[in-house]
Design a protein around this nucleic acid. Structure first.
Lengths: 207, 207
DNA sequence: CGCCGACCATGACAAATGTCACTGCTCTAC
DNA sequence: GTAGAGCAGTGACATTTGTCATGGTCGGCG
């Protein structure tokens, strides 16, 4: 309040790919009013760093090992007074829904023009929200997940190359039970194999 | 030879993700001896731009629509006197092999530290080669692909959620024949389902 | 030539997967 | 309290997938 010099936005970046992390730092440090104060390569250390540095905004990649962007966002927002922007390669409707539920302030796909990212961060730092309009529209037209928890469990494991028996063992269920869940999920999603069903559910962001 | 001012390296960047493209530009433009002269979001326009701009080095992402990094590299190197560096998220041994066959000069995963990228580009511009040591070692220990052409065809299609019958139709074969190819591929790769076999072959970069 | 090996192709059989009908159990909501 | 929804399981059955034995074709090669 003493003059026209605005305090710059302190930013934390998390992305598992070193190259991307460095490149984003370089890009955003070019902005006079943004200062990258830290970076992490997974969700767990991102949460720790956020607690330590108390940045104004955290830019989190969705796809990360250990804890993904949503998990990290949840941890960070429950312990630190900061804003979170999620960046993602696969912007799926269900993921946006979960991100908003986690009280994230911004959601942008990696296909966003680089010039816009700084503006998004400024908006978010100022207390506004920014949701990529494309994804928002898709999410609004996409129907809500019709699957039960157990069906989702079975589908999740079906994305790997496990057999039905292996999935059953993992879930502590009988093989026939798992087949039933998968079968009903396939019916609901209009899929012709459990793999197709798992793929569809993944695309929707339900698993 | 007239003084200590070296001509800067003219660089072309291709990556399908706008954000990454912009961030890499920002990162590399920070280097005093590197100048980003153009960027493209797919392999086809990368090849066209390279022909037009004749850059010293092309930095190509492997995963791109239209034509992927390898295809773009082949086109570029057959028409323009330039060097190519491939950047990739999934650095698989077989892909490195194909990249080298396409006379690419550099091969780096996206997990490379950002600071190193500029050095790689300088090395390549100077006529040297740079191969990520980690991947090189893996590629040398990995055995050569034991699969026949038809087996690879069948595996490629098995990565989607098609049924065996659909694959057979696509390849103009009997269903039983396709099952045989998949079965023998599974034996060779020690997999327990065609999906697992397709996954393994993909990880090796054979398909 | 005649034989070999590699690849391609098929049909018969076995095992895994998907479908359906039905039985309980435990919640929650009306 | 009882109807509905989700969860867990069973058994019978059809379909799909994986395995195996077998033949065909083609290009080397002695």
């Amino acid at each position: 309040m003493t003059g026209d010099e605005t305090r710059s936005i302190r930013l934390l970046i998390a992305d598992d790919e070193h190259l991307i992390r460095g490149a984003l730092s370089a890009l955003l440090n070019l902005e006079p009013d943004i200062e990258v104060v830290g970076s992490a390569d997974n969700g767990v250390s991102a949460a720790e760093l956020a607690l330590e540095l108390k940045p104004d905004v955290c830019l989190l990649d969705l796809e990360m090992p250990q804890a993904d962007g949503l998990e990290a966002a949840a941890r960070i927002l429950s312990t630190v007074a900061t804003k979170v922007v999620i960046v993602t390669r696969h912007a799926r409707p269900g993921v946006l829904r979960r991100a908003l539920a986690a009280r994230v302030s911004g959601f942008v796909p990696k296909s966003t023009p680089a010039e816009e990212l700084a503006d998004v961060i400024r908006d978010v730092a100022a207390g506004k929200r920014y949701i990529d309009p494309e994804i928002a529209a898709t999410a609004l037209t996409a129907e809500r997940c019709p699957l039960t928890d157990r069906e989702l469990d079975a589908l999740r494991l079906s994305r790997s190359t496990m057999s039905v028996q292996e999935i059953a063992d993992r879930l502590h269920l009988a093989a026939g039970t798992v087949r039933n869940y998968l079968s009903s999920a396939m019916t609901k999603l209009d899929a012709r194999s459990r793999h197709e069903a798992a793929e569809l559910a993944w695309q929707q962001g339900w698993i």
